[in-house]
C-alpha cells in the first residue's frame, strides 16, 4: 500500500521484481481507515500532488482479519527491518491460531 499511482507501481514492480500485490492509495483513503496518516511535516518532490504520506507500517493479520502484530516506523529513514518482520512472522504465524 502506498500513495504511488497504479502506473508508478507497475513501473517500480518491474524495476524491483516485487512479488507482493502492490496497491495504490493516492488519496490516503485506506491509510486513513487504518489511522496511519503521518500528520508531521511532509515534503514532496516538485510535481507530486500527494497531500501526506502514511507512516511506514507493517501489519500481520490472522485469517479473521485480526491484527496479530504490527510495527510502526516512527522515523521514515528507518523502515521495518526485514529481519524483524521475518522473526515476527515466524513467531506469530507459526504459533497455534486461537
Amino acid at each position: 500500500m502506498s500513495t504511488d499511482l497504479p502506473e508508478e507501481i507497475a513501473e517500480e514492480r518491474h524495476l524491483h521484481g516485487l512479488q507482493a500485490r502492490m496497491l495504490s492509495d493516492r488519496q490516503l483513503a485506506v491509510t486513513d481507515k487504518f489511522g496511519l496518516r503521518n500528520t508531521a511535516y511532509h515534503s514532496a518532490p516538485p510535481g507530486d500532488d500527494t497531500e501526506a504520506l502514511p507512516v511506514p507500517t507493517t501489519l500481520l493479520i490472522d485469517a479473521d482479519g485480526k491484527v496479530l502484530w504490527m510495527d510502526v516506523s516512527e522515523d521514515y529513514q528507518r523502515r521495518s527491518d526485514p529481519s524483524v518482520v521475518l522473526a515476527a512472522m515466524q513467531q506469530v504465524f507459526d504459533a497455534p491460531q486461537p
Binding site: 500500500m1 502506498s2 511506514p56 507493517t58 501489519l59 500481520l60 485469517a63 523502515r79 521495518s80 512472522m89
Partner: peptide
C-alpha cells in the same frame, strides 16, 4: 478472509 496476511504501508517510491 481465511488467509494469514502481511499488509505493509509504504511511503512512496
Amino acid at each position: 478472509h481465511g488467509h494469514l496476511a502481511l499488509i505493509k504501508f509504504f511511503r512512496a517510491h
